[in-house]
Protein backbone atom coordinates (compact mmCIF):
# COMPACT_ATOMS: atom_id res chain seq x y z
CA UNK A 1 0.00 0.00 0.00
CA UNK A 2 1.46 3.29 -1.01
CA UNK A 3 0.37 6.77 -0.04
CA UNK A 4 -0.77 7.04 -3.63
CA UNK A 5 -3.86 5.02 -2.71
CA UNK A 6 -4.62 7.41 0.11
CA UNK A 7 -4.25 10.43 -2.13
CA UNK A 8 -6.47 8.90 -4.79
CA UNK A 9 -9.24 7.97 -2.36
CA UNK A 10 -9.13 11.41 -0.75
CA UNK A 11 -9.18 13.07 -4.16
CA UNK A 12 -11.98 10.86 -5.38
CA UNK A 13 -13.90 11.69 -2.22
CA UNK A 14 -13.90 15.43 -2.86
CA UNK A 15 -14.54 14.83 -6.56
CA UNK A 16 -17.62 12.79 -5.74
CA UNK A 17 -18.91 15.44 -3.34
CA UNK A 18 -18.54 18.20 -5.93
CA UNK A 19 -20.17 15.95 -8.52
CA UNK A 20 -23.15 15.48 -6.19
CA UNK A 21 -23.54 19.24 -5.77
CA UNK A 22 -23.10 19.90 -9.48
CA UNK A 23 -25.60 17.22 -10.48
CA UNK A 24 -28.21 18.64 -8.09
CA UNK A 25 -27.89 22.06 -9.70
CA UNK A 26 -27.63 20.74 -13.27
CA UNK A 27 -30.69 18.51 -12.89
CA UNK A 28 -32.96 21.51 -12.39
CA UNK A 29 -31.05 23.78 -14.74
CA UNK A 30 -31.32 21.29 -17.58
CA UNK A 31 -35.10 21.28 -17.47
CA UNK A 32 -36.05 24.76 -16.26
CA UNK A 33 -32.99 26.85 -17.20
CA UNK A 34 -33.16 27.95 -13.57
CA UNK A 35 -29.90 28.48 -11.70
CA UNK A 36 -31.20 27.07 -8.46
CA UNK A 37 -29.28 28.68 -5.62
CA UNK A 38 -32.02 27.28 -3.38
CA UNK A 39 -30.43 23.86 -3.81
CA UNK A 40 -28.41 24.92 -0.77
CA UNK A 41 -31.65 25.17 1.20
CA UNK A 42 -32.38 21.53 0.41
CA UNK A 43 -28.97 20.50 1.70
CA UNK A 44 -29.57 22.61 4.80
CA UNK A 45 -32.94 20.92 5.37
CA UNK A 46 -31.27 17.53 5.00
CA UNK A 47 -28.69 18.60 7.57
CA UNK A 48 -31.31 19.61 10.12
CA UNK A 49 -33.29 16.43 9.42
CA UNK A 50 -30.21 14.43 10.39
CA UNK A 51 -29.71 16.56 13.51
CA UNK A 52 -33.31 16.15 14.61
CA UNK A 53 -33.29 12.39 14.09
CA UNK A 54 -30.00 11.84 15.95
CA UNK A 55 -30.40 8.72 18.06
CA UNK A 56 -32.54 6.80 15.60
CA UNK A 57 -31.01 3.95 13.58
CA UNK A 58 -28.97 5.23 10.65
CA UNK A 59 -31.10 3.55 7.99
CA UNK A 60 -34.22 5.21 9.35
CA UNK A 61 -32.47 8.58 9.54
CA UNK A 62 -31.38 8.27 5.93
CA UNK A 63 -34.91 7.47 4.82
CA UNK A 64 -36.33 10.40 6.78
CA UNK A 65 -33.67 12.73 5.38
CA UNK A 66 -34.29 11.67 1.80
CA UNK A 67 -38.04 12.03 2.26
CA UNK A 68 -37.59 15.46 3.85
CA UNK A 69 -35.31 16.70 1.07
CA UNK A 70 -37.49 15.35 -1.72
CA UNK A 71 -40.64 16.74 -0.12
CA UNK A 72 -38.96 20.13 0.39
CA UNK A 73 -37.72 20.17 -3.19
CA UNK A 74 -41.11 19.35 -4.68
CA UNK A 75 -42.83 21.78 -2.33
CA UNK A 76 -40.42 24.60 -3.14
CA UNK A 77 -41.12 24.10 -6.81
CA UNK A 78 -44.85 24.08 -6.19
CA UNK A 79 -44.93 27.12 -3.90
CA UNK A 80 -42.18 29.32 -5.27
CA UNK A 81 -40.98 28.32 -8.71
CA UNK A 82 -44.25 27.32 -10.32
CA UNK A 83 -45.56 30.86 -9.97
CA UNK A 84 -42.62 32.27 -11.91
CA UNK A 85 -42.36 29.47 -14.45
CA UNK A 86 -41.80 30.89 -17.90
CA UNK A 87 -40.82 34.27 -16.46
CA UNK A 88 -37.62 35.84 -17.71
CA UNK A 89 -34.29 34.59 -16.33
CA UNK A 90 -33.82 37.59 -14.05
CA UNK A 91 -37.10 36.90 -12.30
CA UNK A 92 -36.20 33.24 -11.86
CA UNK A 93 -32.92 34.33 -10.42
CA UNK A 94 -34.34 36.72 -7.88
CA UNK A 95 -36.89 34.09 -6.90
CA UNK A 96 -34.15 31.58 -6.24
CA UNK A 97 -32.27 34.16 -4.15
CA UNK A 98 -35.41 35.03 -2.27
CA UNK A 99 -36.13 31.38 -1.52
CA UNK A 100 -32.55 30.80 -0.34
CA UNK A 101 -32.62 33.80 1.98
CA UNK A 102 -36.12 33.05 3.22
CA UNK A 103 -35.19 29.45 4.03
CA UNK A 104 -32.01 30.34 5.87
CA UNK A 105 -33.82 33.08 7.79
CA UNK A 106 -36.49 30.55 8.67
CA UNK A 107 -33.86 28.08 9.85
CA UNK A 108 -32.29 30.82 11.94
CA UNK A 109 -35.65 31.65 13.52
CA UNK A 110 -36.35 27.98 14.32
CA UNK A 111 -32.94 26.53 15.17
CA UNK A 112 -30.91 29.66 15.95
CA UNK A 113 -27.76 30.84 14.23
CA UNK A 114 -25.40 28.65 16.25
CA UNK A 115 -24.14 25.35 14.85
CA UNK A 116 -26.33 22.37 15.75
CA UNK A 117 -24.09 19.38 16.31
CA UNK A 118 -24.88 15.79 15.39
CA UNK A 119 -23.04 12.69 14.40
CA UNK A 120 -24.05 10.61 11.40
CA UNK A 121 -22.48 7.34 12.44
CA UNK A 122 -19.52 6.71 14.74
CA UNK A 123 -18.03 4.26 12.24
CA UNK A 124 -17.68 7.03 9.66
CA UNK A 125 -15.11 8.71 11.90
CA UNK A 126 -12.86 5.66 11.77
CA UNK A 127 -10.23 4.88 9.20
CA UNK A 128 -8.89 1.78 7.63
CA UNK A 129 -5.17 1.70 8.23
CA UNK A 130 -2.70 -0.05 6.04
CA UNK A 131 0.69 0.43 7.56
CA UNK A 132 1.26 4.17 7.44
CA UNK A 133 -1.68 4.81 5.14
CA UNK A 134 -5.03 5.85 6.58
CA UNK A 135 -8.18 5.83 4.50
CA UNK A 136 -11.20 7.30 6.29
CA UNK A 137 -14.28 5.08 6.07
CA UNK A 138 -16.32 8.21 5.32
CA UNK A 139 -14.38 8.78 2.11
CA UNK A 140 -15.02 5.23 0.97
CA UNK A 141 -18.71 5.59 1.82
CA UNK A 142 -18.88 8.84 -0.15
CA UNK A 143 -17.29 7.32 -3.21
CA UNK A 144 -19.42 4.18 -3.13
CA UNK A 145 -22.71 5.96 -2.50
CA UNK A 146 -22.02 8.59 -5.17
CA UNK A 147 -21.16 5.88 -7.68
CA UNK A 148 -24.42 4.09 -6.85
CA UNK A 149 -26.45 7.30 -7.11
CA UNK A 150 -24.92 8.30 -10.42
CA UNK A 151 -25.40 4.78 -11.76
CA UNK A 152 -29.00 4.69 -10.59
CA UNK A 153 -29.67 8.13 -12.04
CA UNK A 154 -28.30 7.19 -15.42
CA UNK A 155 -30.34 3.98 -15.44
CA UNK A 156 -33.43 5.97 -14.53
CA UNK A 157 -32.78 8.50 -17.30
CA UNK A 158 -32.01 5.97 -20.02
CA UNK A 159 -34.24 3.01 -19.16
CA UNK A 160 -37.52 4.47 -17.95
CA UNK A 161 -40.24 6.31 -19.79
CA UNK A 162 -40.18 9.20 -17.34
CA UNK A 163 -36.41 9.38 -17.64
CA UNK A 164 -36.67 9.58 -21.41
CA UNK A 165 -39.28 12.30 -21.09
CA UNK A 166 -36.97 14.25 -18.80
CA UNK A 167 -34.12 14.01 -21.25
CA UNK A 168 -36.40 15.14 -24.04
CA UNK A 169 -37.66 18.05 -21.94
CA UNK A 170 -34.11 19.08 -21.12
CA UNK A 171 -33.17 19.04 -24.80
CA UNK A 172 -36.24 20.90 -26.11
CA UNK A 173 -39.09 21.53 -23.73
CA UNK A 174 -41.53 22.86 -26.29
CA UNK A 175 -41.21 19.89 -28.59
CA UNK A 176 -41.42 17.52 -25.63
CA UNK A 177 -44.75 19.10 -24.72
CA UNK A 178 -45.94 18.63 -28.29
CA UNK A 179 -45.27 14.92 -27.77
CA UNK A 180 -47.53 15.03 -24.72
CA UNK A 181 -44.86 15.20 -22.02
CA UNK A 182 -46.55 16.71 -18.98
CA UNK A 183 -44.73 19.83 -17.82
CA UNK A 184 -45.59 19.58 -14.13
CA UNK A 185 -44.59 15.97 -13.94
CA UNK A 186 -41.10 16.27 -15.39
CA UNK A 187 -40.37 19.45 -13.47
CA UNK A 188 -41.51 17.94 -10.17
CA UNK A 189 -39.43 14.90 -10.94
CA UNK A 190 -36.35 17.00 -11.66
CA UNK A 191 -36.75 18.72 -8.30
CA UNK A 192 -37.35 15.37 -6.58
CA UNK A 193 -34.12 13.98 -8.03
CA UNK A 194 -32.28 17.10 -6.93
CA UNK A 195 -33.77 16.46 -3.46
CA UNK A 196 -32.27 12.96 -3.34
CA UNK A 197 -28.88 14.36 -4.37
CA UNK A 198 -29.19 17.08 -1.72
CA UNK A 199 -29.95 14.49 0.95
CA UNK A 200 -26.81 12.57 0.06
CA UNK A 201 -24.78 15.79 0.08
CA UNK A 202 -26.20 16.70 3.50
CA UNK A 203 -25.27 13.28 4.88
CA UNK A 204 -21.65 13.49 3.80
CA UNK A 205 -21.23 17.16 4.67
CA UNK A 206 -22.56 16.57 8.17
CA UNK A 207 -20.48 13.43 8.64
CA UNK A 208 -17.40 15.49 7.80
CA UNK A 209 -18.20 18.69 9.68
CA UNK A 210 -20.28 17.40 12.58
CA UNK A 211 -22.64 20.37 12.72
CA UNK A 212 -25.28 22.28 10.77
CA UNK A 213 -25.84 26.04 10.52
CA UNK A 214 -28.49 28.03 8.60
CA UNK A 215 -25.86 28.63 5.92
CA UNK A 216 -25.16 24.89 5.55
CA UNK A 217 -24.80 23.91 1.92
CA UNK A 218 -24.29 27.39 0.48
CA UNK A 219 -20.61 26.92 -0.30
CA UNK A 220 -21.38 23.44 -1.57
CA UNK A 221 -23.78 24.87 -4.13
CA UNK A 222 -21.32 27.56 -5.19
CA UNK A 223 -18.71 24.91 -5.88
CA UNK A 224 -21.35 22.81 -7.60
CA UNK A 225 -22.19 25.72 -9.89
CA UNK A 226 -18.59 26.29 -10.82
CA UNK A 227 -18.11 22.56 -11.37
CA UNK A 228 -21.16 22.49 -13.63
CA UNK A 229 -19.73 25.40 -15.65
CA UNK A 230 -16.37 23.64 -15.91
CA UNK A 231 -18.05 20.52 -17.24
CA UNK A 232 -20.44 22.27 -19.59
CA UNK A 233 -23.59 23.65 -18.02
CA UNK A 234 -26.33 21.97 -19.96
CA UNK A 235 -25.45 18.32 -19.64
CA UNK A 236 -25.63 16.05 -16.61
CA UNK A 237 -22.62 14.12 -17.75
CA UNK A 238 -20.73 17.39 -17.99
CA UNK A 239 -21.80 18.38 -14.48
CA UNK A 240 -20.68 15.05 -13.03
CA UNK A 241 -17.33 15.13 -14.79
CA UNK A 242 -16.83 18.81 -13.94
CA UNK A 243 -17.47 18.03 -10.27
CA UNK A 244 -15.10 15.12 -10.33
CA UNK A 245 -12.33 17.10 -12.00
CA UNK A 246 -12.73 20.15 -9.76
CA UNK A 247 -12.82 18.05 -6.60
CA UNK A 248 -9.94 15.79 -7.53
CA UNK A 249 -7.77 18.79 -8.50
CA UNK A 250 -8.74 20.59 -5.31
CA UNK A 251 -7.79 17.65 -3.15
CA UNK A 252 -4.53 17.07 -5.00
CA UNK A 253 -3.63 20.72 -4.47
CA UNK A 254 -4.49 20.28 -0.81
CA UNK A 255 -2.14 17.29 -0.59
CA UNK A 256 0.80 18.65 -2.52
CA UNK A 257 0.80 22.44 -2.06
CA UNK A 258 3.42 23.82 0.32
CA UNK A 259 1.97 24.45 3.78
CA UNK A 260 2.14 28.24 3.56
CA UNK A 261 -0.02 28.47 0.43
CA UNK A 262 -2.47 25.68 1.35
CA UNK A 263 -5.06 28.11 2.73
CA UNK A 264 -5.23 29.70 -0.72
CA UNK A 265 -6.12 26.39 -2.33
CA UNK A 266 -9.49 27.44 -3.72
CA UNK A 267 -8.12 30.64 -5.24
CA UNK A 268 -5.37 28.64 -6.94
CA UNK A 269 -7.90 26.07 -8.07
CA UNK A 270 -10.05 28.74 -9.70
CA UNK A 271 -7.05 30.32 -11.35
CA UNK A 272 -6.45 26.89 -12.88
CA UNK A 273 -10.11 26.77 -13.93
CA UNK A 274 -9.68 30.14 -15.63
CA UNK A 275 -6.65 28.82 -17.48
CA UNK A 276 -8.63 25.75 -18.48
CA UNK A 277 -11.40 27.94 -19.88
CA UNK A 278 -8.89 29.71 -22.08
CA UNK A 279 -7.80 26.37 -23.47
CA UNK A 280 -11.17 24.61 -23.60
CA UNK A 281 -13.94 27.20 -23.72
CA UNK A 282 -16.72 24.71 -24.34
CA UNK A 283 -16.13 23.05 -20.98
CA UNK A 284 -14.55 19.66 -20.50
CA UNK A 285 -17.38 17.81 -22.16
CA UNK A 286 -18.26 19.19 -25.55
CA UNK A 287 -21.97 19.68 -25.98
CA UNK A 288 -23.87 17.12 -27.96
CA UNK A 289 -26.74 19.55 -28.40
CA UNK A 290 -26.91 22.30 -30.96
CA UNK A 291 -24.95 25.39 -30.12
CA UNK A 292 -26.76 27.86 -27.97
CA UNK A 293 -25.59 31.42 -27.68
Amino acid sequence: MSPLIQYSIDALNLGCLYALYALGVAMVFGILRLVNFAHSSLIMIGGYALVLTAGLPLALRVVITVVACVAAAVLLELVAFRAVRGANPATLLVTSFAVTIAMSSLAEAVFGALPAAADVHPALRESYSFGTVYVPKLNIATVVVTALLVGGLSLFLTRTTLGLQMRAAAADFTTARLMGVRTDRVISMAFAVSGVLAAAAALFLLAASGSVTPGFGVDAVLFGLIAAVVGGLSSLRGAAIGGLVLGVSGQLLQSFLPVEVKPFRDAILFAAVAALLVLRPQGLVAKAEGVRI
Binding site: L164, T175, R177, G180, V181, E289
Partner: peptide, 29 residues
Protein backbone atom coordinates in the same frame (compact mmCIF):
# COMPACT_ATOMS: atom_id res chain seq x y z
CA UNK B 1 -49.53 18.32 -23.87
CA UNK B 2 -53.35 18.32 -23.75
CA UNK B 3 -54.11 19.04 -27.41
CA UNK B 4 -52.00 16.04 -28.40
CA UNK B 5 -54.17 13.96 -26.07
CA UNK B 6 -57.24 15.27 -27.90
CA UNK B 7 -55.79 13.89 -31.14
CA UNK B 8 -53.88 16.84 -32.63
CA UNK B 9 -50.25 16.27 -33.64
CA UNK B 10 -47.96 19.04 -34.86
CA UNK B 11 -44.84 18.45 -36.94
CA UNK B 12 -43.11 21.73 -36.15
CA UNK B 13 -41.26 23.92 -38.58
CA UNK B 14 -37.58 22.99 -38.52
CA UNK B 15 -38.65 19.49 -37.48
CA UNK B 16 -37.33 19.81 -33.92
CA UNK B 17 -36.23 16.26 -33.56
CA UNK B 18 -34.28 15.48 -30.37
CA UNK B 19 -30.78 15.42 -31.80
CA UNK B 20 -29.12 14.04 -28.68
CA UNK B 21 -31.55 11.11 -28.46
CA UNK B 22 -31.60 8.06 -30.69
CA UNK B 23 -34.07 7.53 -33.50
CA UNK B 24 -35.71 4.82 -31.36
CA UNK B 25 -36.06 7.22 -28.43
CA UNK B 26 -37.52 9.92 -30.66
CA UNK B 27 -40.12 7.48 -31.89
CA UNK B 28 -40.86 6.28 -28.35
CA UNK B 29 -41.48 9.91 -27.36
Amino acid sequence: EETVRRGVALVPEGRNIFGSLTVAENLAL
